[in-house]
Nucleic acid binder design. Structure first.
Length: 143
DNA sequence: AGCCATGCACCG
DNA sequence: CGGTGCATGGCT
């Protein structure tokens, strides 16, 4: 069983909006969260290093999976999951708005990322149960 | 809910 | 001193 999540990239995701870091927002839907490692919600802003291999080049990257949750502690307004530290990666693969990032993982294997260019995204194949969520996210379970 | 933005710290 | 990342708030 392989699980994959796809995210259509926004301008902020690829780092072209003037923000100080490229990175993407991860929705709190269970289907997406369960794909990523568990973070301890009883501590403030838990984070985890995510080792990811690019599918084509086999290059190794490290992203951060963080749960900004200061709201739960009455110290702020945040209650969201984010993937950060992706600036160099986005540049290296020349990610553009509307390109799609695919994260996949099988059983206990390490994470993989693949980019699908906007120009070819119409050829996206669906070979399992797919679940389309908001924010440009799609979850795929396939065997 | 999702995307955009920024003050400050740190590091080359 | 310019770029990057952390943690946070803002805008729609």
């Amino acid at each position: 069983m392989t699980t994959a999540v796809r995210k259509k990239l926004s301008a902020n995701d690829v780092g072209t909006t003037g923000g100080h870091q490229a990175g993407i927002l991860v929705p709190k839907e269970k289907q997406v969260l369960s794909f990523f490692p568990d973070l301890d919600k009883t501590v403030k802003n838990p984070r985890m290093k995510l080792v990811v291999f690019e599918r084509e080049s086999r290059e190794r990257w490290e992203f951060n999976f963080i749960y900004y949750n200061n709201r739960l502690f009455g110290e702020g307004t945040r209650n969201e999951y984010r993937l950060t530290g992706m600036t160099k990666f986005m540049r290296a693969i020349d990610a553009k708005v509307d390109d799609i990032l695919v994260f996949s993982r099988d059983e206990n294997a390490s994470f993989e990322v693949e980019i699908i260019r906007a120009s070819t995204s119409s050829s996206l194949q669906i070979d399992g149960d797919t679940l389309v969520l908001g924010g440009g996210w799609t979850v795929i379970h396939s065997s």
